Amino acid sequence: MTRMDDLAELLKTLCPMFLLVDQNGHILRVGPTLQKLRPDCVMEGQSFLDIFEMVRPRTVTTIPALMAMAGANLHLRFHDEPRTALKGLVAPLPGGEGAVINLSFGISILDAVRDYALTSADFSGTDLAIELLYLVEAKSAAMDASRSLNLRLQGAMLAAEEQAYTDTLTGVKNRRAMDSLLGQMIASNAPFAVMHIDLDYFKSVNDRLGHAAGDFVLQQAARIMIEETRDDDTVARIGGDEFVVIFQGLSNTDRLSAIADRLIERLNQPMRFQDKDCRISASIGTALSTHFDSPRAEDVLQASDLALYQAKREGRSCHRLYSTLLKAQS
């Protein structure tokens, strides 16, 4: 047996919902419980992202991005029906040979047991799911209904809370989330920067190619902003074609200008939609909380807005700092 075969045999016992993938994301081995969920699907040899759809984080759309999420919580589901919700964890193998991806059901375990007729034999002996299954079997029908309802209510509450702070079109945060975060930053007295981004010529894309093209451009623009900022930064869509990025603990204007320049460069590239080019650019204004002796959220936002409109007055597709405006006025 090869080393991969030995590893797969071990994983069958420890985590029967595992996937063993190579460095290119092709599936080499599949855990017995996971295969039971799709008995007619030959997973081995297929690409991981051809079988599973990433739900969070939305930025994981390639195998390199997946491999880079080692140790982070992943939320995913099957592409086909039933689209069972799953949680996952990526553990890279030594030497870059690939990775082990371990999956679990999370709070959807009761639905999974029902949908796939799973038993205790389908889980690791140390999995807490075993204990839950015994409890489910021991409860009365009334208690089963009560627990199931509570789980669904909890999931609905979490989903509702997440939705309340998320822009449904782009998947980034919305104005409500931005206001909440700025309030937290002000209360903590931590330094931060606000970058206000306006997509130039977006209206012409909508007028010329339709709202579907406009939606596509907004989604691509949001993706670019996420890719060009740090994990600790927050991207929010606050209007039709307006975005704000909040940089926590970042007040270095050279670094902020470099980020803005990368955003402008990437957003200037044509976006292909249904064999047609969508062309936009970006005007950007940035303000720092450190510009103010006693910063307020509305003051920093207004300052970034003033810097943005200075960029627009100077020809668009450029970045201006509020500090530059202050020097010009002094």
Rank of each mutant, 00 (worst) to 15 (best):
G240C: 11
K312H: 01
R296P: 04
A258G: 05
S289F: 13
L308K: 02
A282H: 06
G249Q: 11
T290L: 10
R272C: 15
R262N: 13
N252R: 06
D305E: 03
D305N: 02
D277Q: 10
L288R: 01
D299S: 08
Q248A: 14
S257K: 01
D277S: 12
S283I: 09
G249I: 09
Y309E: 07
R255Y: 07
V245D: 11
D241T: 11
L267W: 14
D299C: 03
R296Y: 01
G240K: 07
E265R: 10
S294C: 13
K276Y: 09
S289M: 13
E242T: 02
D305V: 03
Q269S: 06
A303Y: 09
C278P: 00
Q310W: 02
C278M: 00
V245E: 08
R262C: 09
D277N: 11
T290N: 08
K276R: 14
G249E: 10
I246A: 05
R255A: 11
M271V: 03
E265S: 07
C278I: 00
L267H: 14
H291T: 02
R279V: 15
N252M: 07
D277A: 11
V244Y: 04
L288K: 00
L256E: 06
R296W: 00
D305I: 00
D241H: 11
A260D: 00
N268D: 07
V300K: 07
L288N: 02
Q310E: 04
I280H: 01
A282G: 03
Q302T: 13
F273L: 04
K312Y: 07
L306A: 12
I280L: 01
L256I: 11
F292N: 00
